[in-house]
Design a binder for these strands. Structure first.
Lengths: 214, 214
DNA sequence: GCGAACATACCCAGTTCTGGGTATTCACAG
DNA sequence: CTGTGAATACCCAGAACTGGGTATGTTCGC
């Protein structure tokens, strides 16, 4: 709104598959309002160039030979905090999505996304938006619902589960916890299953990290 | 040395086993320089009384019905910071030892300790000492060697080990870490072995806790 | 007095971690 | 140039954890 509407948004592509890279570039060349200023087949080359000149928006593949697109995103954001990076990948992968956002990507698209949607996403990214597929968006929403209720999640634990988590956080083995709490090893086992379920985690370490962040 | 030598040291016993409790009390009754002023079979009763009158030294069992001796120690020290509490237990348990000391106990004895040694320990406790069995003492010494270098311990890690620990702290599996770092699963395995060795821990959670405390 | 939540305990199968090795390559200090 | 440390990779065995069940009794609210 307040931004000066620049005539052209410069876009760089980082993508190892030559076919995809070229067709993307060609397509951006025909699109109005955007200009494809550079293409790279790997993250290292791209980063080197970006130190000299950074485009408005980067379309970044995740699976790259050598450095991953996510690591590259992290580095680029460190170098240019206002860089706008759109992840472009084939998988609708939960972890990749969140890792990308944590690394500093501003959006996450699937390669099978229709071309005109990609241009729209580039504009949206430029304007500070967060272009995501609807499904991705709902995952992000769900994530923050959890995020906001981390304390709330802990509240869902019963007394004994909380105590168990406390001891888990101190690194005790199940059998040691059982001894300390005067219950069976199997009960401790059961508690941890409940804890993981309630905290939406899949390992002791993840549970402990949530717990230690109160 | 500088302390006024009081004629009698008042001692309270908190111990749930009646046999041990009585024989301890009887034995203290016969010993010179000490006076057993109270016995309790659980922590709750003892704490209630201590709010009114605190003995010079408390002999505290660890395994008690209800509140543990360690928790009772913590509470009593909060109430009376200058209370002298000697833990008395059957197990030579590393963790119990350190938990006791962290809770505020001034010493840690095994129940099989010879009676005259117990009186000596009570005197030592009264005079500000830290009565421990030789084996316990060496464990404490080792602990502080580590404790003073917690930051230093982390410094001992190589670059890759540090990165591995960072990822371990985020709850990733070995194989995921391997992928992220572009190395073999087996190498991650090797790194964690080194990390555990350098940090003197035996599980991922313990390592993570040390790491998160920077 | 019924259903929900909690605490307890057990089974099983599969995965992951832990801790003991060995070994090569490379770089750097002495 | 020899030794040390870092980084890499592998083997093995056993311990521990994870996740899917089931089952019982208690307590508490409706």
């Amino acid at each position: 709104m307040t931004a000066v509407s620049s005539p052209l948004i410069s876009v760089a592509i980082v993508e190892d598959d030559e076919g995809i890279r070229e067709s993307l570039a060609a397509f951006l060349g025909r699109a109005r309002g955007v200009r494809c200023t550079a293409v790279y087949s790997n993250a290292e080359d791209a980063l080197r160039e970006f130190k000299i000149q950074t485009p408005d928006v980067v379309l970044m593949d995740i699976n790259l030979p050598g450095m991953s697109g996510i690591d590259a995103t992290r580095e680029l954001k460190q170098l240019r905090p206002d860089a706008r990076i759109l992840m472009l990948t084939v998988y609708e992968d939960n972890k990749a999505l969140f890792d990308s956002l944590k690394a500093g990507a501003c959006g996450y698209l699937l390669k099978r996304t229709a071309s005109d949607k990609i241009v729209a996403a580039i504009r949206e990214a430029r304007e500070g938006g967060m272009p995501l597929t609807p499904r991705m968006a709902s995952k992000v929403a769900a994530y923050f619902q959890n995020k906001d209720t981390v304390g709330g999640e802990l509240d869902k634990l019963s007394q004994r589960e909380r105590r168990t988590l406390e001891l888990l956080s101190e690194g005790f083995l199940y059998k040691e916890i059982a001894e300390k709490m005067g219950i069976s090893y199997l009960t401790v086992h059961q508690y941890t299953k409940h804890i993981y379920e309630k905290l939406h985690v899949h390992s002791r370490t993840e549970a402990v990290v949530k717990y230690l962040r109160h």
